[in-house]
């Protein structure tokens, strides 16, 4: 079955067709989420969310860009949502950690960073990380990144550039 046929069947509620559609792109989706979130389990959760959201919104898929860019765009947005929630949680957690843990202030972000692959990627601001991941690992054009992140092409290009500059400095500092 071609991708178009699978999309048509999936739109009519055929879960097997959707599973077939997803099978060829799920590793890319998972890699994107992993690079953005830096944690395997959270990446799997975000990827699952993205798949479910994609299934529920298949009517909105216009077919022009292809299924993979559309799915990966949803994945990037889900990851950005998670990063936003994580920031809010960490701000709250840091504010109360002293009273909860008797004065010892843990650094969950740093602890998570130490365990995960792509430690340096995790130091980038969320949108820059998303733009860079989509561009370098997924081969998105600036226009596709802009569509996925809901910004202008120029902004997407600047995000990618800023991320590259930051990373180069980080790599130099590490060495």
């Amino acid at each position: 079955m071609s991708e178009e046929e699978l999309v048509r069947s999936a739109r009519q509620g055929d879960r097997d067709a959707f599973a077939g559609l997803v099978r060829s792109h799920e590793k890319r989706l998972l890699a994107l989420c992993w690079n953005m979130l830096g944690d395997r389990e959270e990446a799997r959760d975000a990827a699952q969310d993205a798949l479910l959201q994609a299934f529920q919104n298949l009517e909105r898929f216009d077919g022009g860009r292809g299924f993979a860019p559309w799915l990966l765009g949803i994945g990037a947005k889900r990851c950005l949502d998670r990063l936003r929630r994580r920031r809010t949680f960490l701000r709250y957690f840091r504010g109360h950690a002293g009273e909860w843990l008797g004065g010892e202030t843990p650094r969950p972000e740093a602890a998570a960073e130490a365990e995960t692959a792509g430690r340096l990627l995790q130091r980038l601001p969320a949108r820059e990380r998303a733009a860079l991941s989509l561009t370098v690992f997924e081969g998105f054009s600036a226009r596709e990144v802009a569509a996925a992140l809901g910004c202008s092409e120029s902004t997407a290009r600047v995000h990618v550039y800023n991320a590259r500059v930051r990373l180069k400095k980080e790599v130099a500092d590490e060495l």
């Binding site: 992993w34 990627l121 370098v136 690992f137 990373l167 180069k168 790599v171």
Partner: peptide, 12 residues
Amino acid sequence: GVRALGLTAADL
């Protein structure tokens, strides 16, 4: 350089 810092589908 960027690819060396992250994961690709092939790594998974």
